[in-house]
Nucleic acid binder design. Structure first.
Lengths: 340, 340
DNA sequence: AGTGTCTTTGCACACGTATGCAAAGCAAGA
DNA sequence: TCTTGCTTTGCATACGTGTGCAAAGACACT
């Protein structure tokens, strides 16, 4: 039961060719005759040979591994994205190695070091920012990095986000168009680009419409913080609409409001951001801005692979537009408007 | 910017020792003097040396990688478990490489082959069954496998589950004790051990109490199937309680019932299984059987590592008991009982 | 047949580390 | 001082593959 692994040498001798020939058969683009390919393939199949990825990685310097750093796995947007990333990269012959870190980004340093240990060909940082030193560390090691759903001022890093500023503005327009007047915001974590950009776009949109932002609290992407923030806002400014920085928090806000007397959407309209699967569940029926996860993933994978294949590729920033998905928590008509 | 990686040889020459010495410093349990350790460590830190995992894996045959095969990532139980697994294994010096497959287990074959390519030290199959040929394939390759939250008749595989039969029976007792009389079941996929065992335990519990199982439909672990099943059951047998095979489906059932006239828990009590985070959200407030994810993960990791360290370890089956968490969807008192 | 060009093949080495083996160092005891 | 036993070190090799280089082969054209 302890069969030694079949090596390329085994196949070579069995097929009457050299080890190099076998190697070349399994290396796309190498110089081999059709006859040799056929012969080697047959023997390889018979013996059950599969190239050893570690050895291959050692000599070629490429491991066919992509490191994915992710936090906030309890926000359904990310498991979903990870699954899509996994599938998309699998189709390109890459595998995913997962590292989870805490939300605020502690421990990212050790994680990146560990990634370098594994000679990953590329890194996808989902919902995680990278410090300058880390950015440089990856650049030094020659490993491309793509930020997924998180931006960075540093121009050296590629990033894929949705059009967060525009999205925030769209929500403002939508609520104003629906007749809402007393509008507040439970923002995403303002230390993150997504949270910040959405909040900025939203504030901009309101001010363009000549309406004040009655109150804004940082929800930190955490359920309990967001719920408390919403209650505080309701208590203090009696809003007729709240824009919540992402769906994950919006669900908490809906839950929290259910305990109070106010009704959604008649008294208060609630709008989220992401359009995760649950947003369409009848329990929530949440109006929200769609982040096109599929296209974001496709774009991320494409950029990353391009950079892996050609390290001279410049970093690019991609913004993918999303549209508002109107559901019950904030109907287009605007409920009864400012009733308070 | 294209600095070559620092190798053990670099450290060796810089520290005035042999490459073997450096290797031994980074190999726990190797024979090195304290003086050498100090000297080498200092130089290594200064140069930023880190052992190359691929090379290490090539020669030692162990990659420090654990392959995790998972389906049903949209069921929150699994992202949560993956995160815990990742953390627990990280603490032991292992990393996770993720493979996603479809629910019914198609594509598991290719995935396992890919895992073998990467020389993983162990495999955790979460919510996925393994065919006999695959089981043998892993055994032949000498790679330990632990099934997480899924059982198998084959005694050669280790597995960690919750006490599904007992859990099903507990639900039956709980509902009967609450005065429910017309009881039905939307089961988990009966092709899976978890779904089957829970259903069997539940049926057993009912028959012991002298009550009939009015109707049972396989929910296949899918939201829409479960929702349709629940509606069919309500239409047909007017139950006063439905046990749903897992929380993920139970949420769908709650949503579906919200559209009809029946009220939860007054007309119908709903009980789920898993106790995922969302079950405690006020929107759902779901009575359910807790699957102690933390203890299941701990047990899985411990078993896997034990088997990696000593391949002679026999396969073990671990069942971890869970208890019913009573919430609003099925209060202990039993609502108004059989009102229909 | 001879020349030139292009394709195919094998040889040999490199990738970065772990480890068996023997040599060397060291301490203790007689 | 010599032996004995133990610890520490370096040498050499192996792990399984990719790839530069030169040799060999195939083929067409003069």
């Amino acid at each position: 039961m302890n069969e030694r692994r079949v090596t390329s040498q085994d196949v070579a001798t069995a097929a009457g060719v050299s080890q190099s020939a076998v190697s070349r058969v399994f290396t796309p683009g190498a110089s081999v005759s059709a006859a040799t390919v056929a012969k080697v393939r047959a023997v390889a199949d018979r013996l059950g040979y599969r190239p050893n990825v570690l050895a291959r990685g050692l000599v070629s310097g490429r491991s066919r591994l992509i490191g994915v750093v992710v936090a906030y796995l309890e926000n359904q947007f990310y498991p979903d994205a990870v699954e899509r990333l996994s599938r998309a990269l699998q189709a390109e012959g890459y595998r995913i190695i997962i590292f989870t870190v805490m939300g605020r980004g502690e421990g990212v340093g050790e994680v990146i070091e560990a990634l370098l240990d594994y000679q990953v060909d590329g890194i996808i940082a989902a919902s995680v920012g990278l410090s300058d030193t880390l950015t440089r560390r990856c650049a030094d090691a020659g490993i491309p990095v793509v930020l997924f759903n998180r931006g960075q001022i540093d121009q050296r890093l590629s990033q894929v986000t949705s059009a967060n500023r525009q999205g925030g503005q769209d929500v403002a327009d939508f609520l104003v168009g629906g007749g809402r007047k007393r509008i507040a915001h439970v923002s995403g974590w303002l230390g993150s680009s997504t949270g910040f950009d959405r909040a900025e776009g939203f504030a901009d949109g309101l001010s363009k419409a000549g309406l004040p932002l009655m109150k804004q609290i940082d929800g930190k992407y955490q359920r309990d913080v967001a719920a408390a923030a919403a209650l505080e806002i309701v208590e203090e400014v009696r809003p007729d609409a709240i824009f919540v920085g992402n769906d994950h928090m919006a669900f908490a806000v809906l839950d929290a409001l259910r305990g109070t007397g106010v009704s959604v959407p008649d008294d208060i309209a609630i709008v989220g951001y992401d359009d995760v699967t649950m947003a369409s569940w009848p329990s929530f029926d949440l109006t929200t801005v769609r982040q096109p996860s599929g296209r974001m993933v496709a774009s991320t994978v494409e950029m990353l692979i391009r950079q892996i294949d050609d390290h001279a590729q410049p970093a690019k920033k991609v913004e993918i537009a999303g549209e508002i998905v109107v559901r019950g928590s904030a109907p287009a008509g605007g409920g009864d408007g400012a009733r308070v």
